[in-house]
Design a protein around this nucleic acid. Structure first.
Length: 725
RNA sequence: GGUCGGUUAGCUCAGCGGUAGAGCGCUGCAUUCACAUUGCAGAUGUCGCAGGUUCAAAUCCUGCACCGACCACCA
């Protein structure tokens, strides 16, 4: 054996042995309860980051159960990541001086498909380099035809049940990326914006969005506010930048008399609260901002007999971006004597696009919505009845809160890269025909053949929310029946609302069973100082680089060692190096033992004296210590306490076994005591076995180099104390 | 405003009812003996503050103080 363990040369070979040996593929035994986990599918076109390496927790569970003899499935997959991937592809196009609008839908889709498939293998090989024992024979893509079939069927079913409906309401729209988003995808940031106080008839109003005032349809005051009570119900003539408009004062209990001047302008087309208020008071929804984020005054300019002064103004504003128009308006407000003051120090939360940072415009648009409440109720019920449990437990409350507060879910996206919504609109009667994916020949309502398919695609989370059953129905015959519900869903707590809750809701409703029995949530990986990793800070730890430098085992161990479930962790390179040193320690223990095997001329396991008959004090001590360790580690594994398990093995291997037992054994070995060697080797095997889920490569490699009772590779050797068939 | 988390050795964090732990760092000694990616020895903590429960609390309860995360339609 070499003096030092060199992971690079070993890991690739070992992984190939596992994969070609078929050990990742479960042997289905109807008499046994399976253990199954779905890998949260990484984006097909992107490299893995250190957060993905946290899925090592899944590999640990999987390897543990496989060694216990359970039919064990860890299902790999790749996510088409609709909007996110299209965003990356558009950047790629931009480098070539092109945009997505240069292509027709089919071409664009095909090009992105090719783009993704060129990159896809990269991510999959990175998962291999981490040592993940995924069943590649079942590897599945979110755009697999069978997955799509399930997603279509679900959409149709939900629609038939009235749980999917189409509605026109204000959508969180990114005018740069050209698509709407669900509420969850809006990222709120604290920002300073000027607050404009302007004259409004007999009042002064305060607004941070003066550009929307052209389409105000009412004024709202708190019905309890004595200052304005007398105006409620009155219709007033108000002088604006484009001449007088008439507006009614309406009561709204949610108006805060303390805020601004206590009177609020109502713009149903551009503010969600105003939109609701507009519904209640039957106000028109009249937009002033278009889908490109530009001011649209065509409604005004199309009117006959406009005062030339106002026409000039409207023309000046028309077609310009919001940010450009604001200062122009301020000038005009001043000129008309309508500007009271500007408060520059106003701080508020602004919704931005989570991807590009553009301010989200609430814009009126027709979209498909999922009616969440009935689905959420079932999910909450399942949590309460312990059909699904959380590790750590506190996330149970978080999940319930999310499920209680979800609004209806907008699942339409104005993207090309995704699953196109199987809905056709009739140009004759305006009704929608929804199918299971097959193209209808005519409108289901009026029979007209003038039908056009919706150009939108599904929110990626709508399909990934069905991942547990959509995959298992698509992989191999019988998989769904055998492996569903899956055992554990392990993922970062940051996608609890996006993904975990949605899988619960859709899974329970559409299959009648929870999609997974346990949810294990891990935290964020931060840098060595506890800072969030980001490219701009330059503190990003690249998992592949770390694997090259220290080995996958070291990285894996560093990630679980000393990390509590659900807690963020700081990962410094020093910690990984420390674990590399541990690898080296193990390697040298193996070298030491093989040295004496050679000295004693032992090449076969049965040439060693039997282990079980040891009754000498020194051997006994070792044996009972390792038995204790095994119990402890097994208990920790079963309770998802991986940090404690790793800690216990590390401590035992290095500071008990190597530092004490081996040192004490040296004189005995020098005296030619084979019994001592036999005991040491057997204890070491127990350590390797217990450690294998955490550090699979080095343990397997050492295993292969020493004589053993069975020729089975470590990956399928039995966990001590478990019953194997 | 609401919810959740954190506050433990110089740094980063485990532990969460029985007289303080790990990794890294630090100090001293050791090197042809499996490993310097090492060994041995060692220093460093009234476990955020104040009360309470208990034979016993870093660990449970209450309050407070700072940090942090997430949520919420204050224009």
């Amino acid at each position: 054996m070499d003096k030092n363990f060199v992971p690079k040369t070993v890991e690739e070979t070992v992984y190939k042995t596992w994969e070609s040996g078929g050990y990742f593929t479960p042997v289905i035994d109807p008499g046994k309860k399976p253990f199954s986990v779905l890998l949260p599918p990484p984006n097909a076109n992107a490299d893995l980051h250190v957060g993905h390496a946290m899925y090592v927790i899944e590999d640990i569970m999987i390897r543990f159960h496989r060694m216990k003899g359970d039919p064990t499935l860890w299902l790999p997959g790749a996510d088409h990541a609709g909007f996110e991937t299209q965003y990356v592809y558009e950047k790629h196009l931009a480098k070539q001086g092109k945009s997505r609008f240069d292509f027709d839908r089919e071409t664009l889709y095909r090009d992105i498909w090719n783009f993704v498939h060129e990159n896809r293998g990269k991510m999959e090989n990175q998962l291999r380099r981490l040592g993940f024992s995924l069943d590649w024979s079942r590897n599945i893509f979110t755009l697999n035809p069978n997955v799509i079939k399930t997603v279509y069927a679900s959409f149709k079913q939900l629609s038939d049940e009235g749980l999917v409906y189409r509605d026109s309401r204000l959508v969180n729209y990114c005018t740069k990326d050209g698509t709407g988003f669900s509420d969850l995808e809006v990222l709120y940031v604290e920002r300073n914006d000027p607050m404009y106080y302007m004259k409004y008839g007999p009042f002064t109003i305060a607004t941070a969005r003066p550009e929307t005032k052209f389409r105000d349809t009412a004024l709202a005051v708190n019905p309890k506010d004595k200052r304005y009570k007398k105006y409620i119900g009155q219709t007033l003539q108000i002088m604006g930048l484009l001449g007088p408009v008439s507006m009614t004062v309406i009561p709204d209990a949610e108006v805060d008399p303390e805020f601004g001047t206590g009177i609020m302008k109502v713009t149903p087309a551009h503010d969600p609260h105003d939109f609701e208020l507009g519904k209640k008071f039957n106000l028109p929804v009249t937009p002033i901002i278009d889908f490109r984020g530009k001011m649209d005054f065509s409604w005004f300019l199309n009117q006959p007999d406009i005062d030339p002064k106002y026409r000039e103004r409207a023309e000046k504003y028309h077609g310009k971006k919001v940010a450009v128009v604001r200062p122009l308006m301020v000038e005009d407000l001043k000129a008309d004597g309508l500007l009271v003051k500007i408060d520059e120090a106003y701080s508020h939360r602004v919704g931005t696009c989570w991807k590009c940072g553009t301010v989200i415009e609430p814009l009126p648009l027709e979209q498909w919505y999922v009616k969440v409440e009935p689905l959420a109720k079932k999910a909450i019920e399942a949590i309460k009845k312990k059909k699904v449990t959380f590790v750590p437990k506190r996330f149970e409350k978080t999940a319930k809160q999310w499920l209680t507060n979800f609004h209806d879910w907008n699942i339409s996206r104005q993207n090309v890269w995704g699953i196109r919504i199987p809905a056709w609109k009739c140009t004759a009667c305006a009704s929608w025909t929804i199918t299971d994916g097959s193209v209808p020949s005519s409108c289901y309502s009026c029979g007209s053949d003038a039908i056009i398919q919706d150009t939108d695609t599904f929110d990626t989370w709508f399909s990934s929310g069905q991942w547990p059953f959509a995959t298992l129905k698509a992989t191999k015959q019988g998989d769904f029946d055998y492996f569903y519900p899956t055992s554990v869903m392990e993922t970062g707590y940051d996608i609890l609302p996006w993904w975990v809750c949605r899988m619960l809701m859709l899974g329970i409703h559409l299959t009648g069973k929870v999609p997974f029995e346990t949810v294990y949530l891990h935290g964020l990986v931060r840098d060595g100082k506890g800072q969030k990793m980001s490219k701009s800070k330059g503190n990003v730890i690249n998992p592949l680089e770390m694997i090259d430098k220290y080995g996958a085992d070291a990285l894996r161990m560093a990630l679980v060692f000393g990390t509590g479930a659900g807690n963020d962790q700081s990962l410094a390179e020093d910690k990984i190096r420390g674990m590399r040193n541990f690898s080296n320690k193990l390697w040298n223990i193996a070298r030491f033992l093989s040295l004496y095997l050679d000295k004693f001329g032992i090449s076969e396991f049965n040439q060693l004296p039997p282990y079980a008959g040891n009754r000498r004090k020194h051997d006994d001590q070792m044996t009972s210590a390792v038995t204790e360790l095994t119990k402890k580690v097994t208990k920790h594994m079963e309770k998802y306490q991986f940090s404690d398990a790793a800690n216990a093995i590390y401590e035992f291997a290095w500071h008990t076994f190597a530092d004490q037992y081996i040192e004490q054994s040296k004189p005995l070995l020098e005296a030619g005591d084979k019994q001592t060697l036999a005991t040491l080797i057997n204890v070491f095997y127990a350590i390797l076995t217990l450690l294998h889920p955490f550090m699979p490569f080095i343990t397997e490699e050492i295993w292969s180099k020493l004589p053993k009772a069975s020729e089975d590779p470590l990956i399928i050797s039995s966990w001590p104390g478990s019953k194997q068939s």
